[in-house]
């Protein structure tokens, strides 16, 4: 399953860097370009790369779709909780934490936490959607071929 040895090896070297880059974009989103959405998409691209290179079994091992579904709900709830935390100081979405010093990591109060919550939603949601569309699209495209394949149908049921 998956692509040739060269591609696999190169991916093994690169994948850590991709994830690091994504996390960097998420954490420093309030200081430069980037933020939760952009960083989350880069992280998702890392997962999609794993899936393309090593085959879908390996990628799903790393992140099962029901776990991803769970995570996306948690991320959304976390973002809402951050918004509601503003009520501590009286207003919805109020950034009540000390704003810190300019141009440092600790300089925007709650914004980095909101970015992290957004990135959790984006990673899990886009990855789930990608996996499901791949599964479902294959199933629809070659319906005759897969109709009698018990294992394949069972796999879809498990992942949905």
């Amino acid at each position: 399953m998956g692509m040739s040895l060269i591609v696999k090896k190169v991916t093994q070297f690169v994948i850590g860097l991709i994830f690091l880059y994504g996390i960097n974009i998420i954490l420093f989103g309030h200081l430069g370009v980037g933020g939760g959405f952009a960083g989350g998409v880069i992280l998702t691209c890392g997962f999609i790369l794993i899936m393309l290179v090593f085959g879908r079994e390996k990628a799903i091992q790393k992140m099962r779709t029901n776990v991803a579904h769970f995570l996306s709900c948690i991320g959304a709830l976390a973002f809402l909780a951050i918004a509601l935390l503003g009520y501590i100081d009286g207003t919805f979405f109020f950034n009540f934490i000390d704003h810190g010093k300019e141009f440092h990591l600790h300089s925007a109060g709650l914004i980095p936490f909101a970015d992290i919550a957004i990135s959790i939603i984006i990673v899990s949601a886009i990855f789930t959607i990608f996996v499901l569309l791949v599964f479902f699209g294959r199933f629809v495209g070659d319906a005759e071929e897969y109709e009698n394949d018990e294992e394949y149908v069972g796999n879809i049921d498990r992942n949905l």
């Binding site: 959607i129 569309l133 479902f136 629809v140 319906a143």
Partner: peptide, 13 residues
């Protein structure tokens, strides 16, 4: 877009 693609796949089915 995702909504549309998934509905289009269902329609094809």
């Amino acid at each position: 877009l995702i909504m549309m693609v998934s509905i289009a796949l269902r329609l094809y089915e």
